[in-house]
Write a protein that binds this DNA or RNA. Structure first.
Length: 577
DNA sequence: TCTTACGAAACA
DNA sequence: TGTTTCGTAAGA
């Protein structure tokens, strides 16, 4: 950089800076100020303050190539080139956009602070590079060109796609820019050795590409670059903290400015995508030999792979897969058997709980069936009772005829005497206006009279109301004149007296439809128990499936549990032995 | 000074 | 709407 600076030593102005004696200075004014709009010379790569050379940010947008006065004096063929008006908006080419971004200057400063690599920064402005350059990507180095994550470094392992917790949230170390990424984010030694180990196992790896080699390559390239950048730069001390702070501040400005340049960015993105595709195809072609063919990955196969395949035949692919299983599976099974599986223990406990609940539910169901038959017995007995005409009169007299209540369905005022009868009919009227069905008929073995289950061909559904309560598909039987009410009488609400209501059924308002309500009560409870049993069955199935799938071939091949603490390696065996 | 964790912008 | 990755605060 200093050498370059000396090239423009005819520019007037102070060489020293306010922030630090060694901070790089720019422009004809030789000041380190980078917080304003700047433009870079496409020949010497020097940066100039817009206000010093009388170019505004707006006017710079029209410039396609810009050369400083000194370069133009030296080489008369260098001319400032402008965009045609037509293309100006369309072609907001990334190169120039970046060139005029003041934030880039801040980046330059920051980079100079961390790594003395400014010349490369200049070279990164070469036209034709399609890799997107950003604050942390020069777009030129190997890591920047890399498109795939190594899946081995700590950053990759943190990623969700590799099953990580997504806590670190950093780009693959092998993709951290050699120039602009922070040093601590780049490849660590452990990662490198890991890659080498992986390298050794490459016969088992389908998508083998030597990460370590790549790393070496890019390290070598970086080193080469460093040499080319010149020792002047290497010796240049970093910026002062104040300068660094400033640089970071300006970088923030860039982020905000980016919003305005979204259009331009999308263009850059497209270019990046193109480059990605290009790089990918390049990477692929690297695996091929001189004739453009690559070797089949099948075990000890020397044939050429088929086009768009890694193998010469399906057989080779299967052989490799089988080899993998033979190689990996026994270890995995051994590992699996060595360490206790918490999930398996939980599963067993859950099964035990489910079985207990199922037992309870079955007991309850038996109880409900017993009650069902008991009720039918009571109803049959009640029907045999003889009618007593005088009781009807007594009952009628005891009611308070002035009192009025309101129907819960239609909200009309009704006489309490006929309230039950009215509300029952009202409910039936409204209920029969709607349907309540399912596509499937009920299939519960051993259960009698639960759901209505009448098929509706229009809606192609089966009615799912309780059979005894369905006003849509069943009508209350006609009551004959001599039929007795027969409701079992009680005292203190629950205590059975052993006696039955002997009022004629037609006239008994007190026990209107008592059989229906009692039956519904029992049936509803039976349905609940069946639901419970169904739910428990489903739970059991899920737990069993999970237990069966656990440690299956696929699971064992794909996942591995690593015991980090040797003391707790085999808890079960400690207990059992 | 380095590491970890996380909000949030950018991107797919 | 989910993923990637940047910047940065907080803690070691």
């Amino acid at each position: 950089m200093d050498s370059e600076m000396s090239d423009i030593d005819h520019f007037p102005g102070p060489e020293s800076s306010m922030e630090g004696e060694n901070a790089p200075v720019y422009c004809i004014c030789r000041k380190p100020d980078i917080s304003c709009f700047m433009i870079g010379c496409d020949n010497c790569n020097e940066w100039f303050h817009g206000h010093c050379i009388d170019i505004t940010e707006k006017s710079a947008k029209a410039i396609r190539e810009w050369y400083c006065m000194r370069c133009r004096d030296k080489n008369s063929s260098l001319e400032i080139k402008y965009r045609s008006k037509k293309n100006r908006d369309k072609e907001a080419e990334p190169d120039r956009t970046e060139r005029i971004e003041r934030s880039e200057r801040s980046e330059r400063s920051e980079r100079s602070y961390s790594t003395p690599s400014t010349p490369d920064y200049k070279s990164e402005r070469r036209r034709g590079s399609k890799v997107k350059r950003s604050v942390r990507m020069c777009g030129e180095c190997e890591p920047c060109r890399r498109t795939e994550d190594c899946a081995q470094c700590d950053f990759c392992k943190d990623m969700k796609k590799f099953g990580g917790p997504n806590k670190i949230r950093q780009k693959c170390r092998f993709r951290q820019c050699e120039v602009r990424a922070r040093k601590m984010l780049r490849v660590k030694d452990e990662e490198l050795s890991m890659q080498e180990r992986r390298d050794n196992r490459r016969r088992y790896s389908e998508d083998y590409d030597s990460e370590a080699d790549l790393y070496q390559q890019y390290r070598a390239a970086g080193h080469k670059n460093n040499m080319a950048w010149g020792s002047d730069e290497d010796d240049e001390p970093p910026f002062s903290p104040v300068m660094r702070k400033k640089a970071i501040k300006v970088k923030h400005v860039k982020r905000r400015e980016k919003k305005f340049d979204k259009k331009k960015e999308s263009r850059r993105h497209k270019q990046k995508q193109k480059h990605k595709d290009k790089t990918r195809s390049n990477e692929k072609s690297e695996l091929r030999d001189n004739t453009g063919q690559r070797q089949c990955l099948g075990p000890s196969c020397v044939e050429a792979a088929r086009p768009n395949s890694k193998y010469c035949s399906e057989d080779c692919g299967m052989k490799l897969a089988a080899n993998r299983i033979y190689e990996i599976l026994p270890q995995r099974i051994q590992q699996w058997q060595q360490s206790p599986c918490i999930a398996e223990e939980h599963g067993k406990k859950q099964l035990e709980r489910i079985r207990k609940e199922q037992q309870n539910a079955r007991l309850r169901l038996t109880d409900m069936e017993r009650r069902f038959h008991e009720l039918e017995g009571i109803i049959a007995k009640a029907k045999q009772q003889a009618v007593q005409q005088d009781e009807e009169v007594n009952e009628g007299d005891s009611e308070d005829t002035d009192l009025q209540i309101f129907c819960v369905s239609c909200s009309h005022p009704i006489n309490p005497k006929v309230a039950l009868r009215h509300m029952e009919r009202c409910y039936a009227k409204y209920e029969s206006q709607t349907s309540f069905g399912s596509m499937y008929p009920t299939r519960i073995e051993g259960a009698t009279r639960l759901f209505c289950d009448v098929y509706n061909p229009q809606s192609k559904t089966y009615c799912k109301r309780l059979q005894v309560l369905c006003p849509e598909h069943s009508r209350d039987p006609k009551i004959s004149v001599d039929e007795v009410c027969g409701c079992p009488l009680v005292k203190n609400v629950f205590e059975l007296t052993g006696d039955y209501c002997r009022v004629p059924k037609r006239k008994c308002n007190k026990h209107y439809n008592w059989e229906k309500l009692r039956r519904a009560e029992v049936d509803l409870e039976r349905v609940r128990v069946w639901y419970k049993l169904d739910e428990l069955f489903e739970q059991e199935r899920n737990v069993r499936t999970a237990m069966t799938n656990r440690a299956g071939l696929l699971a064992l091949m794909l996942h591995q549990t690593i015991q980090h603490d040797p003391l707790t390696t085999d808890l079960r065996s400690n207990k059992d032995r």
